[in-house]
């Protein structure tokens, strides 16, 4: 009987084997999942579930979500991409979305780092002060 701890340990080493220069290689990850499914080692479902969670966290860590009140021009997008790549290194996946609820300004989230320059964010800070 494999314990949850062993499955977690295996999932972590599986994730490490899917990384190249500290970045997740998607092809390797797919291949690893396929191999686990083919071989069906003991406790493989739990291993895959934990592996999925680790991959999810890894993707979130390397994804920048840029939200703005209105669509950003291509120049702005290029500028932001350059700045974020400079700060967080290469391999960053950047998504641009429009969120009218921000009222104005930008909100950028990379993993658990959040840069909130939106009007909504400032109003929230102000509301908290009361």
């Amino acid at each position: 009987m494999r314990t949850a701890k062993q499955s977690r340990r295996d999932a972590k080493s599986l994730l490490r084997s899917c990384q190249v220069n500290g970045l997740l290689d998607e092809a390797r990850a797919r291949q690893a999942v396929q191999q686990v499914i083919d071989r069906k080692p003991r406790g493989y479902l739990r291993l895959l579930a934990y592996f999925k969670r680790l991959v999810q966290l890894e993707i979130a860590r390397r994804t920048a979500r840029v939200e703005s009140a209105m669509d950003l021009s291509p120049e702005w997008q290029t500028r932001l991409t350059g700045n974020l790549t400079h700060t967080y290194g290469p391999g960053l996946r950047i998504t641009f979305t429009r969120n009218a609820a921000l009222i104005g300004g930008l909100r950028i989230a990379v993993g658990s780092d959040v840069f909130d320059g939106s009007v909504q964010g400032r109003l929230a800070v102000l509301a908290n002060r009361f």
Binding site: L57, R61, A109, G111, S112, D113, V114, F115, D116, G117
Partner: peptide, 23 residues
């Protein structure tokens, strides 16, 4: 614009919260 480190509450029980993120 200040950088903030943000996490999300995953579980809360008996006065103890488990928070995802907050690196």
């Amino acid at each position: 614009v200040n950088r903030q480190n943000v996490g999300v509450v995953r579980e809360i029980s008996d006065g103890v919260a488990r928070v995802e993120g907050l690196t």
